[in-house]
Design a protein around this nucleic acid. Structure first.
Lengths: 128, 128
DNA sequence: TATGCACCTTGTAGTGGCTACAAGGTCAAG
DNA sequence: CTTGACCTTGTAGCCACTACAAGGTGCATA
């Protein structure tokens, strides 16, 4: 499987895959006679793992940790749980922030009387 | 007022203020005899405006537009309203995404039995 | 007067997570 | 034998800062 096919199968792009390789998230795959990267099911699974974790908002550093933990199935999953729970708390924090922000934004927009900028409540709020 | 004082008054840093100046969000202030930037109430108000807008999640490009709109108080505030409403919708979208993500993350963490990585539901979910 | 220290100056480079080229190589179909 | 889709490497850009380094300024204290 060439890089484009792998990209299509994982909802990524060739650039992103090469970027993951550059940063060490993916290993360098074997090459064809024509120097094309040649991927198999192992790399596909690894990339899918990465994409799922990224889609769930894990940082690349966290993904790196999760990957190396998943490589050793016998050890305790305490570390996995801890990374994930920490991330969950982080997401909760972001949600709270965003909800607060949305409320303020909503009030601001609702108060706008669609007149002149001089009396605009939005500008007023921003001006303090 | 020197840059550090302005930073303290606005919850920013001198670096950020200089960055805003470099990118044209703030104008170049007058200088003291010793070549220090010398700020007055006008710049303070402008920076507060910028910070409020940034805190509400507006991009720098949006802030730039809002600033230039607020400079002309006689015109209609339609554009202001449009920028803000668009941003509000964007925030709503982000909130929905984040809530969905949180739910998935929550399930994943809840299902973890704290055993070995080999049976870890978190790793399982990520592996697909 | 010297010295220390907090603050300021410019300039450059790094962050995360990609994304967008440019300039050229490979390979199968027509 | 040419076209066109794909691949290669390398470099630079995105956003909104942040973090230095190397040196200048200004005021209080010994």
């Amino acid at each position: 499987m060439k890089i484009g096919a792998l990209a299509r199968k994982t909802g990524t792009t060739a650039e992103t895959i090469r970027y993951y390789e550059r940063t060490g998230l993916l290993e360098e795959p074997p090459r064809t006679a024509g120097n094309y990267r040649d991927y198999g099911p192992t790399e596909l699974a690894r990339l899918r793992f990465i994409r799922r974790a990224r889609d769930l908002g894990f940082t690349m550093a966290e993904v790196r940790q999760l990957l190396s933990l998943s490589d050793d199935p016998s050890q305790s999953c305490e570390a996995v749980d801890s990374i994930s729970s920490l991330h969950l708390r982080e997401v909760d924090r972001k949600l709270a922030d965003l909800r607060k922000l949305r409320t303020e934004l909503r009030h601001m927009v609702d108060d706008c009387q669609h007149g002149a900028v001089g009396e605009c409540r939005i500008i007023e709020v921003l001006s303090g």
